[in-house]
């Protein structure tokens, strides 16, 4: 049984670890430090932690000002507020000026669960991807969260790292995280499944079942949405008969859109997308919601069969 971790726990611990080594790391939160786990850093380094209260716009622009003076600023709140409420500040201050502001947004996606639609960011990747030069990472599990947070420090500029709320199983045998380089987790030449975030586990479960029926699936974890690893995607488009893309996000402007652009422009193959389709979220348990919105391994299996039929 795979280890289950909260990505935000891992994030909070990574911040503390980084804060010890690097005195220029400063952390901002907007009254959600307990949930985002920036509270770990606040406890260890109170002088380098600033709580902005429920005022995300101010927080984002202030992060830019602080980063302009040479600091690396991690800014956390829920994804719906980071990407939605403060979008103009993220565009015009954070990204346009391009300093080291690393937005780590938690509680993204439908798996937020019972809080319902207002708190389920299903369009945050699209909002961030529309902004030039915004680097975007969607780690698939706990350990990858740590790798992404560490990696973003050495790369200049603005980042958006998307984390979920629930515990997620650790994905095994995926290899070392390399920014901008997709991970081919299983080999296969029949169909490709491209996924990010918690959908990687669902994809692997689907692949395992399909293998029993003799369908060999290549599962690719595209943890970096920007810059997108076009080469790995195109290689899969060439070598397999079709692609199923899965993301816990609207199919507009996220992973699905980006992969389809690359494929359509270079090597059109049959593509099916599993994601949120023109719907708001709603209350429910994460597993109920994943089922309701057709984001389970079963849905992926069906899509794979459809692609090769």
């Amino acid at each position: 049984m795979a280890e289950m971790l909260y990505q935000r726990d891992v994030y909070g611990k990574a911040l503390v670890e980084l804060g010890k080594k690097n005195k220029d790391i400063v952390v901002f939160d907007a009254d959600l430090s307990g949930s985002t786990r920036t509270s770990f850093f606040a406890k260890e380094f109170p002088e380098r932690f600033f709580n902005f209260g429920v005022a995300e716009q101010n927080m984002m622009a202030a992060a830019t000002g602080l980063a302009s003076c040479g600091k690396t600023v991690f800014v956390s709140t829920f994804a719906i507020f980071a990407a939605g409420r403060a979008w103009d500040q993220v565009r015009n201050s954070v990204a346009y000026s391009g300093y080291n502001v690393k937005i780590v947004a938690t509680h993204a996606g439908i798996s937020v669960g019972p809080d319902g639609a207002s708190h389920q960011a299903l369009e945050d990747i699209a909002l961030m991807q529309a902004i030039p030069k915004m680097n975007i990472i969607v780690p698939c599990d706990g350990p990858q969260t740590r790798e992404a947070v560490i990696a973003c420090i050495d790369i200049k500029g603005a980042f958006y790292i998307r984390l979920g709320r629930p515990k997620v199983p650790t994905v095994e045998n995926k290899g070392k995280f390399e920014f901008g380089k997709a991970q081919v987790i299983t080999k296969g030449d029949d169909v490709t499944i491209i996924a990010c975030g918690i959908m990687v586990n669902e994809a692997l479960a689907a692949a395992e079942n399909l293998a029993k029926n003799g369908i060999k699936v290549r599962v690719i974890n595209v943890h970096t949405i920007r810059p997108l690893d076009n080469d790995t995607i195109l290689k899969a488009a060439c070598e397999t008969r079709g692609i199923v893309i899965c993301e816990e996000h609207t199919v507009i402007g996220g992973l699905a859109s980006s992969v389809q652009e690359v494929v359509a422009e270079n090597n059109p193959v049959k593509v099916l997308c599993l994601g949120i389709k023109n719907r708001f979220g709603q209350s429910g348990s994460p597993s109920e919601l994943l089922k309701e919105y057709n984001l389970t391994s079963f849905d992926i299996e069906e899509a794979v069969k459809k692609v090769i039929s």
Binding site: Q57, A62, L66
Partner: peptide, 14 residues
């Protein structure tokens, strides 16, 4: 509307 926030960030750095 964003500049006073930017300035606040600079002031925190100082």
């Amino acid at each position: 509307g964003q500049g006073l926030s930017v300035s606040l960030g600079m002031s925190l750095a100082a």
